[in-house]
Computed example of a mutant assay.
Amino acid sequence: MSTDAGPAGRQPQEPPHAVENLDHHECWRLLRSVSVGRLAVWVDDHPDIFPINYKVDHGTLVFRTAEGTKLQAATGDTPVAVETDGVDAEAGVAWSVVVKGQAAAVQNPEEVLDTVGLLLFPWQAGKKEHFVRITPDTVTGRRFKVAAPATWWTPLDDATRSGLE
């Protein structure tokens, strides 16, 4: 008879709030599985966030952009972060990966030709001639079970809703 079983012979389960820290390889696999993320940069005296679509290229992230705030802030001296995530609705599992590092404009002609070969097409119309490469200092990720609404509902939810009706 096993001593691992809980009440009524049930096996103990992980708590519903358990978070799995992802290893380096799983983070990169997940980064390759999606193409949209959020770029966090420092602009003047405050943080700002921009949506980007990107490609993974030899352990870096590459995105295209136009002249402007995003390009200037990303390629300055301050490190940047990119966060991307996903959810498997059927399995009820979500994940998030964060890349932190330094971004630099791709300027070497050979490297520009290589990045063009990534077939990285901006989603938003307009002239997006600048390629930016983010070289990570850290890549971290986590996966977790999505909580059922009944587990996070509070009486305040109904009070707020009735106040709006």
Results as ranks from 00 to 15, higher is better:
M1R: 05
T3C: 03
D4M: 12
D4V: 09
D4W: 12
G6K: 08
G9S: 06
R10A: 14
Q11L: 13
P12R: 15
P15R: 15
P15E: 15
P16E: 11
H17C: 02
H17V: 06
V19G: 01
E20V: 09
N21A: 09
N21E: 14
H24P: 00
H24L: 04
H24E: 05
E26R: 07
W28V: 08
L30D: 03
L30G: 01
S33N: 06
S33A: 11
V36N: 14
G37R: 01
L39I: 08
L39P: 03
A40K: 04
A40E: 07
W42T: 09
W42I: 08
D44V: 10
D44E: 14
D44I: 11
P47L: 02
I49D: 06
P51C: 13
P51S: 11
I52N: 05
I52L: 14
N53M: 12
N53I: 09
Y54I: 03
K55N: 03
V56L: 08
H58K: 09
G59P: 03
G59F: 02
G59I: 02
L61Q: 05
L61R: 06
L61D: 04
F63W: 12
F63G: 05
T65C: 14
T65F: 06
A66R: 05
E67R: 08
G68R: 03
T69S: 12
T69N: 11
K70N: 03
Q72Y: 12
A74I: 01
A74N: 02
G76D: 15
G76T: 10
T78Y: 09
P79W: 09
V80W: 00
V80E: 05
V82H: 15
V82D: 14
V82Y: 10
V82M: 15
T84W: 04
T84G: 14
D85L: 05
D85Q: 13
D85S: 15
D88L: 00
A89L: 09
A89H: 04
A91H: 01
G92A: 00
V93F: 07
W95V: 06
W95P: 01
V98R: 05
V98P: 01
V99G: 08
K100M: 08
K100Y: 02
G101Q: 01
A103C: 04
A103D: 01
V106C: 02
Q107W: 02
Q107L: 10
P109G: 10
E110C: 09
E111G: 07
V112Y: 07
L113T: 11
D114H: 11
T115K: 04
T115W: 02
V116Y: 04
G117A: 15
L119W: 10
F121A: 13
F121Q: 13
P122W: 00
P122D: 09
W123V: 07
W123P: 03
G126S: 15
K128V: 04
K128S: 13
K128P: 02
K128W: 10
K128Y: 12
F131Q: 06
V132E: 01
R133N: 05
I134A: 01
P136N: 13
D137H: 13
T138Y: 08
T138M: 04
T138P: 07
V139H: 10
G141Q: 06
G141M: 00
R142E: 02
F144C: 00
V146T: 08
A147Q: 14
A148E: 04
A148Q: 05
P149V: 03
T151I: 07
W153T: 08
P155L: 01
D157K: 08
D157F: 12
D158Y: 03
T160S: 08
T160M: 12
R161V: 13
S162L: 09
G163Y: 03
L164P: 00
E165P: 00
